[in-house]
Design a protein around this nucleic acid. Structure first.
Lengths: 159, 159
DNA sequence: CACCTGACTAGCGGATACGCAAGCCAGGCT
DNA sequence: AGCCTGGCTTGCGTATCCGCTAGTCAGGTG
C-alpha cells in the first residue's frame, strides 16, 4: 500500500478514469440530459422542453450519447400514431445514478435556495430519502478524509 | 408519496440542484481540478502540469472555484522562499468526494482500457477499495432502479 | 391530396473555453 | 543591482457550444 500523494507526476492525468468519464458526460447539458433520462424522460421534445436547450443542440447531444452507448434509440408506436423513436437508458447509462445522486445531494446541501430541494429521490421500498455514500469492499462506511490513493493494475509509470 | 414521472412539466429544470451543481463543477477542466485538489495538489504549477491545461485557463478556473467557495487561497511560506499562495479545499469542496468517487467508479467500469484502473482509492483503515453506493435514510442499500421521485419542500409548481 | 405534427437538420451569429506565446511582478539570491 | 523563479496576466487565434430561425421529412388524419 503505497501513498502516491508525493509521487503524482509519475502518472498521467490523461489516463485517468475521471477524465475519460468527463469526456462523455462532462458538459452541463449532457449531464442534465442524463438526469432527465434517469428520471424517466424518453422523447425528443420532452428532453428539449425539460432540459431547456435548443433542438439542434439536443439532437447533437443525443446523438453523442447514443454513440457513447449511454442511450439507445428504440422505435415505438402509439396507437393511431406513426412509428417514432425514443431514447432509452442502457445499463451503462443507468449506472450513472450514483453520480447524479451524489451531484444532487451536493447541490441540495451547498447551493439550495431557502425553500429547500425541489425534488427528493426516495427509496421505493421504504420512502426514505436516498444519499450517495462511500463504502469500502470490507463494508465499512468511509468518511471523505479516510481515502488513500494507491497504484492500480493499469498504472503506467512515466519514469 | 407522489410519483412525479407523469407530472414532470410542473417543475422547472432550471431550479434543479443538479443544474446548479453543474454550473459550478460542470466543465471538464473544473472537475479535473477538483479531482486533483482532492488528491492533494495545492500549488498553481502542479495544477497546471497535472491537469494538462494552460496557465491562463487554470488561473481563470481557480479564481472561479475560490469565488464559488470550493477552494480557498491561503498564503504560506517555505523556509528560504518568499510568501506564496496555495489552494486548499474548503468543506464545500471536500464534500465533492462522493461525486468524484462515483465518477471514477463509473469511468473504471465503462471506459477502462485493458490494463484496468490506473489508480485505486482505498480505505485508510483497512486497505479495501472504495465505491460510491446509494443508501436511504433508513439504512437500506438502494439499487439504481429502486429510486422514486417525490416533491421536496422547495418545489415551485408552474401551474 | 393537402395538411399537420413530431423529430429532426441547416445555417448564422454570439459567447465561452482553451492553447500558445509573451510579458509582468514580487521577493529571495549572489 | 541584477538575476531567477513561481505565479500569474494580456493578447491572439481557434474551436466548440448554444440559441434562433427556417426548412425538411415521414407518416397519419380529414
Amino acid at each position: 500500500m503505497e501513498d502516491l500523494r508525493d509521487d503524482r507526476d509519475t502518472w498521467s492525468t490523461a489516463n485517468c478514469s475521471v477524465a475519460r468519464a468527463m469526456d462523455i458526460v462532462g458538459s452541463r447539458s449532457t449531464m442534465l440530459i442524463m438526469r432527465e433520462a434517469l428520471f424517466g424522460t424518453h422523447r425528443f421534445d420532452d428532453f428539449v422542453r425539460r432540459v431547456g436547450i435548443g433542438e439542434p443542440a439536443m439532437a447533437a447531444r443525443l446523438k453523442e450519447l447514443v454513440a457513447a452507448g449511454l442511450l439507445e434509440r428504440v422505435p415505438y408506436q402509439e396507437p393511431g400514431q406513426r412509428t417514432r423513436h425514443e431514447y432509452r437508458l442502457t445499463r451503462k447509462g443507468r449506472e450513472l445514478v450514483p453520480v447524479i445522486t451524489a451531484l444532487r445531494n451536493w447541490g441540495d446541501t451547498w447551493t439550495a435556495d431557502d425553500a429547500g430541494p425541489s425534488l427528493l429521490a426516495i427509496h421505493r421500498d421504504c420512502g426514505e430519502p436516498i444519499h450517495a455514500v462511500l463504502r469500502c469492499a470490507a463494508g465499512h462506511d468511509v468518511h471523505n478524509s479516510e481515502t488513500v490513493l494507491t497504484a492500480g493494475p493499469g498504472l503506467i509509470r512515466q519514469t
